[in-house]
Design a binder for these strands. Structure first.
Lengths: 238, 238
DNA sequence: CAGTGGTCTAGACCACTAC
DNA sequence: TAGTGGTCTAGACCACTGT
């Protein structure tokens, strides 16, 4: 059951994307919209706030609320900072394969222990997978997960989607993540599995992902082919 | 004059960063906090929402509100997706130099015209600058700006901060931006000015920046040395 | 001045959790 | 049942804009 402001937000997003409103004029003012949707002004505001955060609308005090015009587009795989990097759900119309390069359990280094908020005596899964999209190598993911939270990982799970396993089998809910994005030179592992040249760069995403309980469950490095991946982000004034 | 929820948010952020609250227990519940800050529950919620969005807090219905523990740290220059890339304001304690590599006015290509929402007959500034931090080359910025919005750019402005010029001299307010981040091979320009090797990768940020009126005023490509720049982003569930 | 969005309130009811 | 956060309301006042 979606909340009222989410339903309204979805309806308004649809209208904007279908160009039901002219992008040269303000959209209807908040008072009119509260009447149309039979809601309070706070609820209407919350619904529109979501679209402002998504970069679809902007507001100007004393004037009205307007549609943002231009948006950067291109053809590469496109991950925005709103989504959790579950490749499987991101590209559910494409063929995804996972090849397990390494899978073991070890005691965490100081750094890994700090990010996962576990002590040095708690074993962690350590796994490296190559993910292919439509038979083309796409990304190498090196992942650390604490064994006391993510229980029961095995080869079969690794072949498909760990995120599905965490959500459906373990019944946990994934919350947010902190990420760092940088460029790097390719190393031997990259060249071998991503099939890239020695002078091809790599786009690396370092990530700590959290459950909705705030507990970190994953610390990972995703190394992408530079010609197949772009990271997108929207940034709005406050 | 900061709004009440911003003041409360700042105070709570300070307390969290100074570790005034134990990170093992929930912080005080919303009702207690509304009494302490003499505000309504909606206002308290809005204040805490900001900290949740920043990745400092998480909430669990029926339980309480808790402090997020781990955060990725490192030593490189660190731009988050909340900030507009004004290098000058980002690093105001460091020595920043700008060298103008190219500066001209031209009619926009189809792509540039589309992103800046101008027609083919509106001239745009086209400029390329090398930015140095503490005498070390850091980034090459290639920028397009419409001449009908950003009037009066000259060599003197280019030596310092264009963002300051837009804000202070032109009296415009900068709104949000859309960005794409990718890795790339270095080209001749990069190698010459960033002083990098031919096999050094580059982290490129493509950006369309908007005024608070929603009008795009800048389309740019920033090419960073891979060993001096990391892009940070926080992503929270909804 | 009227019309817009920005903030704030006091109170209500709901959903989830623990006891 | 009590305590938590999530949502929603009806109404108020303020700040900014254009006429």
């Amino acid at each position: 059951m979606l909340s009222k402001y989410e339903q309204i937000s979805n309806e308004m997003r649809k209208r904007i994307q279908e160009e039901s409103y002219s992008s040269d004029e303000p959209i209807p003012d908040e008072l009119s919209l509260t009447k149309e949707f039979s809601c309070s002004r706070m609820t209407m505001k919350k619904a529109l706030d979501i679209l402002v955060m998504e970069g679809l609308l902007y507001r100007k005090r004393g004037h009205g609320t307007f549609i943002v015009k231009s948006t950067i587009q291109d053809n590469l795989v496109n991950v925005t900072d709103k989504e959790n990097l579950g490749l499987t759900s991101l590209l559910n119309d494409k063929k995804i394969e996972s090849k397990v390069i390494q899978f073991d359990v070890l005691f965490p280094s100081e750094k890994v222990a700090a990010y996962l908020c576990v002590d040095h005596n708690t074993p962690v899964y350590h796994l490296t997978r190559l993910r292919k999209i439509e038979n083309e190598p796409f990304v190498i993911e090196e992942t650390y997960m604490p064994t006391n939270i993510i229980r029961g990982i095995n080869e079969e799970v690794l072949q498909s989607s760990i995120y599905n396993f965490i959500t459906n089998t373990l019944g946990l809910t994934i919350g947010g993540s902190h990420r760092k994005i940088r460029a790097d030179k390719s190393n031997n592992l990259d060249q071998t599995y991503l099939n890239c040249a020695s002078d091809d760069p790599i786009l690396e995403v370092e990530q700590v992902a959290y459950l909705n309980t705030g507990i970190p469950f994953e610390y990972s490095f995703s190394r992408h082919r530079y010609d197949k991946f772009v990271f997108t982000t929207v940034n709005i004034r406050r």
